[in-house]
């Protein structure tokens, strides 16, 4: 029996954003990463092109992480004090598509590192790896506005992805990204309207839409994932239905959120009924990623190499 025709024809498409620049393009990366381009909801390529493959950005911090459980930390024990080696390990051993360098150390409560320190860290990471970089501030407006312009300038021409522009603090970061040729992350607190509003604010400053990646604050599995799941889904449908200001790729922060969860952190003696501590955190991170993939995301920030490989293998099966 012939079944009903259920193809959905979408009028819009998510824009493609290219991160990284090769020597020919004025940078020093060996390869670039292009995300976005979807003309269908995730994996329904009978509707239209599903766009570029979802990529994994592995997080590297400029200060050693606090409170990481053993099963996570053991993968980075030898590199947590050196962001360059950390990034190299992610790129060469763990299969990261991108490095997300998070400058937490510039935060007043987390070391208050100087702009020079941050610039040196960025330069060392750029030198250590040949894949493109995401560079994210510490989410303290004052420090970000002081440090990110210098970081941006130090990486000028590398076409990094810089974060993040918020509704209350977008002018400085937008201006430096524009001047130094970087892409920009626009950020919102699980609110689709604010998300769109920030895109409007930065494009009003002359920032091109095809260099924007959106970030709706991520909730981990069991900790509000359904809120950002539905925001992503609504955003993607809006983009495909022709809302230009929503038609940009989406990044989500899975590693940090999943490893804060009690399910990832509780040891075997604290939670014997939950099964192997060594495996539990990895699964929590992987399943957070796998679930968000269904909502329409393009870049996933992750921590654990095994969670990364599970997620990549799953993406292979759907691509």
């Amino acid at each position: 029996m012939q079944i009903a025709n259920v193809v959905d024809k979408w009028t819009g498409a998510v824009k493609e954003v290219t991160i990284g620049a090769t020597k020919d393009q004025g940078g020093t990366r060996e390869k670039t990463v292009t995300v976005g381009g979807a003309k269908s909801i995730p994996f329904m390529d009978f509707d239209g092109d599903q766009g570029k493959r979802i990529v994994i950005a592995m997080d590297v911090y400029d200060i050693p992480p606090e409170d990481w459980p053993e099963s996570l930390l053991k993968n980075y024990e030898d590199v947590v004090n050196d962001p360059a080696s950390w990034a190299k390990k992610c790129a060469e051993e763990y299969g990261a598509d991108l490095i997300c360098l998070k400058l937490d150390g510039i935060h007043p409560d987390k070391g208050n590192k100087s702009a020079d320190d941050a610039v040196n860290t960025v330069k060392s990471v750029l030198e250590a790896v040949n894949i493109p970089l995401i560079i994210w501030g510490c989410e303290n407006n004052e420090r970000d506005n002081e440090v990110m312009p210098k970081v941006s300038q130090a990486a000028a021409g590398e076409r990094c992805l810089l974060g993040g522009a918020t509704q209350d603090n977008y002018k400085t970061i937008t201006a430096v990204c524009l001047a130094d040729g970087h892409n920009l992350i626009t950020q919102a607190p699980v609110d689709i309207n604010i998300g769109k509003q920030v895109n409007i604010l930065v494009t009003d400053l002359g920032f091109p839409l095809d260099r924007i990646v959106m970030f709706q604050t991520t909730g981990a599995l069991g900790y509000g994932i359904e809120y950002c799941y539905s925001i992503h889904e609504r955003g993607r449908i809006a983009a495909l239905s022709g809302d230009n200001q929503m038609a940009v790729p989406v990044i989500c922060d899975v590693g940090h959120e999943a490893w804060r969860a009690k399910e990832a952190k509780a040891t075997d003696s604290e939670a014997p009924q939950w099964g192997s501590f060594a495996e539990r955190g990895i699964m929590w991170e992987a399943i957070t990623a796998v679930s968000l993939i269904q909502s329409g995301v393009d870049i996933i920030r992750m921590y654990h190499p095994k969670a990364v490989s599970i997620t990549k293998e799953h993406i292979d099966k759907l691509t």
Binding site: L221, G275, E279, I287, S291
Partner: peptide
Amino acid sequence: QEIASASAFLAKYAGIVVVDACEPWQIMP
């Protein structure tokens, strides 16, 4: 991979997902 696929099926419309996995750390997520 089984739990990853089952999670995707669960989000996108399965009425029942059957799995072989039965460890708590696999089923809880």
